[in-house]
Amino acid sequence: MSTVIIGKILGWIGFITLLHSTYSTYEHLSYLKAVEKVPNDMPIEIIVECLFSVIIFAVSVILVAGPLKPILMKNEMVKKSIDKVDTRPSFNTFNHRGRIIKSSLG
C-alpha cells in the first residue's frame, strides 16, 4: 500500500516540474520575442527539467498501477482448498463420504 502513496507523491512532483518547464518555455519565448531575436535552441535547463519530469512520472505511474496477477491456473489452484473447488454448481457430488458416515453411525 505504501508504494501507491510514494507513487502519488512522485506523480505530483513530476506534474509540478512539467508545469514549471511549460511556464519557463513560455517565458523564454516571450523574452526572445521582446528582444526581437529568432528562437533557435531551447535552453538546456528546460530540456533537462522536462525529461526529468517524464522519468519521475514514468516511475510514479508504474508504482500507482498496482501489482500484476499470475495467470497460470495451477498457481491459482494452490491457494484454493478442495472444498472450495468441489462446491461449484456444475460439479455436485452425490456419491460422497456422507453415506458411509451415516451408515456407520446407524
Binding site: G14, L18, S21, T22, T25, M42, I46, I47, C50, L51, S53, V54, F57, A58, V61, I62, A65
Partner: peptide
C-alpha cells in the same frame, strides 16, 4: 493499458513543451 495511456499523455505534453 492504464500505464501506457498515462505515459502517452505525459510524454506527449513533454514533446509539445520541447517544441
Amino acid at each position: 493499458t492504464f500505464i501506457r495511456s498515462s505515459m502517452s499523455a505525459i510524454t506527449g505534453s513533454a514533446a509539445g513543451i520541447l517544441g
